[in-house]
Amino acid sequence: MTEYKYEDAIARLEDIIEKLEKGNLSLEESLNLFEEGIRLTKICTKILDEAEGRVQVLIKDLNGEIDFKDFNGGCI
């Protein structure tokens, strides 16, 4: 799927809704917009689920090399 930004997808969605609600479109135009709109709602939902929800802590060794460690909620 395209690399949509959530805000952009929502803005386009709003635009489509506005056009459809105004209603002065040809049948073909409105069907195309409808299709695009439904597709955008799917894209938006997908974007919201993209991140996995990991919490990590950045650690550095003596040479200054960066590494990550899962955060267990307490002290490290």
């Binding site: 996995e52 990991r54 802590v57 955060f71």
Partner: peptide, 10 residues
């Protein structure tokens, strides 16, 4: 937002 990734720099 439960599934956002977080990196803590202590």
């Amino acid at each position: 937002f439960p599934n956002v990734n977080i990196l803590i720099a202590p």
